[in-house]
Design a protein around this nucleic acid. Structure first.
Lengths: 189, 189
DNA sequence: AATTCTAACTAACAAGCGTTAGTTTTGTTA
DNA sequence: TAACAAAACTAACGCTTGTTAGTTAGAATT
């Protein structure tokens, strides 16, 4: 089906523009111009501007949710799970760096059920991470700092990674994983 | 002069709204409504919406610049300087948490010289931090990880601190400093 | 009491917004 | 070659945007 691929094209172009200036600062005419068509033509492929935003955000949000689900259900040490979460973030960052801008900065412009779904996913994700860290502390694998501070510190770094990845032109994924795991883990064990 | 204080009031209210929804999603009518006046009345005190944004952003940006200047010129170890930078971020976060939202997410909506000035300040700031870290590595105080990864990791955490500070209701500043310094420093020494 | 200043107001503007309706072009299939 | 579907187009809609002009009410100063 051609329509689906054209829709995907719109979403990709929109992601890139949202990444630069944010959802509210990008008009349908901006998106159209970037594709060399007129704004009205976009509506042959998508229902609304909102739909573009929620497709961008919820798709990656689900990747995070599924990835975290897998990590949680693995039968390994807490430290190993943290390592897996770091790698999950890096994989998603490398594959969807522009979508992450919308996810991080424009999620509040989601509406209705999409907004609710996103917030729930985000809360669940943080809670799972929190549990992993607490288990690590209880097991003596992780230093007994305040878990909230550890969670915040690691998650901030991972969530902002997309900015740096875009700036410092496309580093090698495996080197990135090794370095990030070192810096983020060695501080807490 | 009363005008200055009324202008400050507008800036404070605007900061709060920008913090919630972002610069482009907040209209002059929104700001006015939050102050129980009409949008046109705002222009008795400010020149434009742009002016509100640049006053919010450049004021804190200068605090960062000055703070970093002081740290760089101190005569102590690199680790001690990193510690001072962390404390600088925490102090600014505690005093201007809502302005930091604009600084982090809406700086690209600055225009002309304001935009240029901001970008320069930001680059200089990062460069100063980078130099401190490199000196620490050379002196053997800091582990020889890739300096860029250390810089990115610490700076991401510090820059996102305002979000967590707002969420986890106003923690005690001194405890916060102690915890952050622990988690961020102990990982790299 | 007259004047000046401050800070609000109403009314309106031109431009831009997301979106719809109806039409035409384009490329593929019967 | 005629029919059909996909994807573009033009034109317009109602609404919101930042901002200006001109006016007015109240307080402070002369």
């Amino acid at each position: 089906m051609k329509t689906i691929s054209r829709k995907q094209e719109i979403i990709t172009v929109a992601s890139s523009l949202f990444n630069e200036k944010g959802y509210k600062a990008v008009s349908m005419r901006d998106i159209a111009k970037a594709m060399d068509i007129k704004a009205a033509s976009l509506y042959n492929h998508i229902k609304s501007k909102q739909e573009i935003l929620s497709e961008i955000i919820l798709k990656v949000a689900e990747e995070f949710t599924n990835g975290m689900e897998n990590v949680v259900n693995e039968n390994t040490s807490a430290i190993n799970k943290v390592e897996k979460v770091i790698e999950l973030h890096i994989d998603i960052t490398v594959n969807h760096s522009e979508a992450l801008a919308a996810l991080n900065n424009d999620w509040m412009h989601l509406e209705g059920d999409d907004l609710k779904a996103f917030i729930k996913m985000r809360e669940d994700y943080e809670e799972n991470f929190r549990i992993i860290i607490k288990q690590g502390i209880d097991a003596g694998e992780i230093k007994p700092y305040h878990p909230e501070v550890i969670l915040f510190s690691i998650l901030s770094t991972l969530r902002t990674l997309y900015v740096w990845y875009q700036k410092r032109g496309k580093l090698d994924v495996n080197i990135l994983k090794k370095d990030m795991v070192s810096v983020l883990i060695k501080g807490i064990i």
